[in-house]
Each structure stands twice: as structure tokens, then as C-alpha cells.
Amino acid sequence: MITEEDVIQIAGLADLSVPQGELTAFTGSFNAILEYFDILDTLEIEGSLERKLFNVFREDEVTESLSQEDALKNSHNPEEGYIRAPKVV
């Protein structure tokens, strides 16, 4: 059962604030999503969890990177090739 405090904490970890009026709605949505897992829990999965896919690798080979110009296309107001972000310390 997710409480309103849980929602506030989870939002806080992502640096988001939840508008006071929407807290109840978010809490309800969280709980509704988690209820789907109750349905999944009813499935018979004995023996079907064996992982058939493992050890997928690439060789240590260098491929071409993006140009700095392309890399910064989604950045607002880059500075000398760097992406600008708000103050963090």
C-alpha cells in the first residue's frame, strides 16, 4: 500500500515536487499500478523462469561518436562544448 508520504519521497528523489491538489490522484495511480502485480502473482510460473539468454557481448572496438555539435543539439545554452546544468553543490 503506497501512502502519500511515499509519493512525496519518491518525487523528491527525482527532484520533482507534487502539487498539493494532485497528491491524492498520484497516490491512487501508484496503488492502481501496483495492483496489477497482484494479478501477475496469480500466474503459474514454476520452471519457466530459466534464463535462456546470457553472455551477450561486443568486442572492444572503437566506433564513431557523435560530433560535438550533434551531441549538444538537445542542450539549451551550451557553453564551450559543455552542457549547462543548474547548480548542484
Partner: peptide, 23 residues
Amino acid sequence: TKSKLFCGCSADFRADAPNTHVC
């Protein structure tokens, strides 16, 4: 290694301009 852990970008980045070893 020559390349990064999960992609082929060159890991030899120290002398180069920022955001030029990215994909």
C-alpha cells in the same frame, strides 16, 4: 579498454574537447 563499457565510443578521452566521445 579501447572503447567504453556499453558502447563503441573511444575511452581515450582526456586530451579531447568535452562531449566529443559520446553517442
